[in-house]
Nucleic acid binder design. Sequence first.
DNA 1: CTATAATGTGACCAGCAGGTCATATGACCT
DNA 2: AGGTCATATGACCTGCTGGTCACATTATAG
Lengths: 220, 220
Amino acid sequence: MPKQTFLNLPEEKRETIINAAVDEFAEYGLENASTNRIVKNSGIAKGSFYQYFEDKQDVFTHLLDVIEQKELEFFKDQHPPNNNMDTFQYYRWMVKTGMEFGLAHPRMIQAAWRVLLGEGFYYGKNLAGYRQKTTQALTTMITQAMERGEVDPSVDVELAVMIMETWSNAITTYVLNEGLKQKDVLKWMRARKTQETIDKLLYVMEYGLRKTESEFVKSF
Amino acid sequence: MPKQTFLNLPEEKRETIINAAVDEFAEYGLENASTNRIVKNSGIAKGSFYQYFEDKQDVFTHLLDVIEQKELEFFKDQHPPNNNMDTFQYYRWMVKTGMEFGLAHPRMIQAAWRVLLGEGFYYGKNLAGYRQKTTQALTTMITQAMERGEVDPSVDVELAVMIMETWSNAITTYVLNEGLKQKDVLKWMRARKTQETIDKLLYVMEYGLRKTESEFVKSF
DNA sequence: CTATAATGTGACCAGCAGGTCATATGACCT
DNA sequence: AGGTCATATGACCTGCTGGTCACATTATAG
């Protein structure tokens, strides 16, 4: 957690610092991020940095908190187009809305994903908590889907969650890497072809998942 | 490419150096690998290292070559249990044989994947070639599968390849991370439960993929 | 105004990084 | 024997790292 000194700062200054950190993480990841560069790019003194944060990991976990909060606000303002969506439609809506959010804050997301996907595993305990939140949410979602009869109740919940996580990871990576190559990200992202690709990916996942277990047993 | 000096070395010495490098990459990735530590752990002088290699990335790409060669030999000795396999059975066999190979050289694989998955994207051109080989192989495979009528010809080849890659990545990551937690890796890997999990994952993929496009079109 | 507390600052430190190079060693040839 | 050439060595260089700390500045209170 950042120290009180940082939280007392005027918002503008806090933002400047966070932005410098975001750029640094997006460019270099966590291990290779340089506090010296962050300090230089945010125009504060080295000493100040250590009066605000414990170290660079402290900055990073704070960044994750900021993102989480922004994302919550963002999702609050969005409304599912339809209240009678089944679980897969809902998941699809979530993935896409998540992408829209990502496009509203591309650097932040890039920084977070670069670190979480690239180095997250090896940082173990420190970052595991943040990944677990998603897992928990998906588990709840799948369980409810079963109760509603939308998913074969013999499906292994853990497995389904892993599959959904894998896909939202893969799609995020895809969007981040393809999207940031484009001149006009928003245009690319909303293009029919891009949307179709993502739809198809999700569809393949969904189609496999809907009938997994019962068919699986038969096939052996 | 390593310099001639390195290739002239007695095999034993070369292995010692490669092993030290493998340990280093597996532990620290590429960017944070330390030539000093590699040198210390392989018992050679700093100067010698630079007479063998350009830099640490040179060592890493050489490592990839070594793995590729070992893998080729390994696959040559294996025989598909059945000559009449369809494409998906073949893919399944490949994924599993690949896993067996990984278990025969766990540190090497760990080192390679840690770097390719974690940092590969950001090294861009330097490592892209190695990833592309797999992509190419899968593309050929899918195309042939279509000719044989095993995959719906309206399926987008690129998409199918991406899906298969995503899954073999996900499974490798899974096996690497779960497997290395175990006391007896080989036993865990060959356990019924592990095999079943992997079978199910592949099955979900396959089931989704077999009928993607035609069903997909209908569903819109 | 003074006294006190909070915040800001950058020179400075030890440690390690990647990389160089003058020199030493020793195998092989004439 | 002397000469040549590939190989081996580690002290040394510069540059950057994360982190500290004595001091300067500013805000608050009496």
